[in-house]
C-alpha cells in the first residue's frame, strides 16, 4: 500500500510540474488564425513541406511516405526475425499476424470467392495503410514547412490527394478484377459503377479530415487541451481507423467479387427463365 501511495504521489507531482512548465513557458505566439489553420488543414495551400528538396508537397505526402516506410520496415523485421520462428502452436505476435492476414484473406474470399488471390494482398495492404496511417496522427510527428514553421504531420488520408489516390487505385483494382474475370464485359460492369472512385475517395477524405479538423480545433485553444484530447484524439482516431479500414476493404472486396464473377451465358439464362416460367 505504501508503495502505491508513493507512486501516486510521484505521478501527481510529475503531472503538476509538467503543467506548470507548460503554462510558464508560454507559446511563441500564433502564426495564423483558427480560420487559416482550418482552411490550411483542408487545402494545404500554405504549409507545404519540401520532398527531399525536389518539390513542395502537402504534409500528407510526407506522412504517407513515413507510414509506408514504417510498415515496410516492420514487415521486414517480422519477416526476418518472427516468421522463421513461427510454430504450429502460435505465440502472441504470431496470433496477431495470422489474425490480420486471415481477416483480410477471409474478407477477400467472402467478397470474391472465385478470384481472391490478388484481392487479398491488396486489401491487406490498403487496410494496413489506412489503419496505421490514421493512427499516425496520434504520434504528432513534427515537420518544418518551406516557410520555416513547425507543423504536426497529419494522417496521410486527410490529404485529398492521398484519398483520391487510394480511391482511384481501389477502383483500378476492381477494374482489373473485372477484366481478369469477364474481359470486356468486366470493363463495362466496372464502368457502370463510375461514381465508385469519387465516393470512396471523398468518403475517406471526409472521414479523416473531420477527425483532423476536430483535433486542430481542440489543440488550437489551450483550455481545451487538457483531458479532452484523450477522448477526441485517441478514441475518435481509433474508431476512425477501424471504421475506415473496414469500409474500404469491404467495399473493394464486394465490388471486386461482383465485377469478376463470370455471368452465365445468355442462352442458359433464357433456358433457366423458360424453366422457371
Amino acid at each position: 500500500m505504501k508503495q502505491h501511495k508513493k507512486a501516486l504521489v510521484v505521478w501527481v507531482g510529475a503531472v503538476l510540474v509538467l503543467l506548470a512548465g507548460a503554462l510558464l513557458a508560454g507559446s511563441s505566439g500564433r502564426t495564423e488564425s483558427v480560420q487559416e489553420t482550418m482552411r490550411d488543414a483542408v487545402l494545404h495551400e500554405v504549409n507545404q513541406v519540401g520532398l527531399f528538396g525536389l518539390r513542395e508537397v502537402n504534409p500528407g505526402m510526407i506522412s504517407a511516405l513515413l507510414v509506408t516506410a514504417f510498415l515496410l520496415l516492420a514487415a521486414a523485421c517480422i519477416r526476418l526475425f518472427a516468421i522463421p520462428r513461427f510454430r504450429y502452436r502460435p505465440g502472441r505476435l504470431q496470433m496477431v499476424l495470422e489474425e490480420a492476414v486471415g481477416l483480410f484473406d477471409g474478407m477477400a474470399r467472402g467478397g470474391s470467392p472465385h478470384r481472391c488471390g490478388f484481392l487479398g494482398a491488396y486489401i491487406f495492404a490498403a487496410g494496413a495503410y489506412i489503419f496505421v496511417g490514421t493512427l499516425f496522427e496520434l504520434l504528432g510527428v513534427q515537420a518544418v514547412t518551406v516557410h520555416g514553421h513547425p507543423i504536426t504531420l497529419p494522417a496521410p488520408l486527410s490529404d485529398v490527394n492521398a484519398a483520391i489516390a487510394l480511391g482511384t487505385l481501389s477502383y483500378l483494382v476492381i477494374l482489373s478484377g473485372g477484366i481478369a474475370g469477364n474481359g470486356v464485359k468486366g470493363v463495362g460492369k466496372t464502368l457502370k459503377e463510375f461514381s465508385l472512385p469519387i465516393s470512396m475517395s471523398f468518403r475517406l477524405f471526409g472521414a479523416l479530415l473531420s477527425g483532423l479538423l476536430v483535433t486542430e480545433l481542440v489543440y488550437y485553444y489551450v483550455n481545451l487541451s487538457y483531458v479532452l484530447p484523450v477522448l477526441v484524439g485517441v478514441l475518435f482516431t481509433l474508431l476512425h481507423a477501424l471504421i475506415q479500414t473496414y469500409v474500404l476493404t469491404m467495399l473493394v472486396s464486394m465490388y471486386y467479387g461482383e465485377v469478376s464473377e463470370q455471368s452465365a451465358p445468355k442462352g442458359k439464362k433464357k433456358k433457366v427463365n423458360a424453366e422457371i416460367n
Binding site: N58, L65, T68, A75, F104, F124, A125, V160, N161, L169
Partner: peptide, 26 residues
C-alpha cells in the same frame, strides 16, 4: 489543391507498399 503529380506519387507509394507487404508479410 488536387495535384495530379502528388496523386501519382501516392499511387507509387501504395504500389510499393502493396508489393512490399505482400512479399514480406502476407
Amino acid at each position: 489543391n488536387i495535384d495530379l503529380q502528388q496523386i501519382l506519387l501516392h499511387w507509387m507509394n501504395l504500389a510499393i507498399l502493396t508489393g512490399g507487404l505482400y512479399f514480406l508479410l502476407f
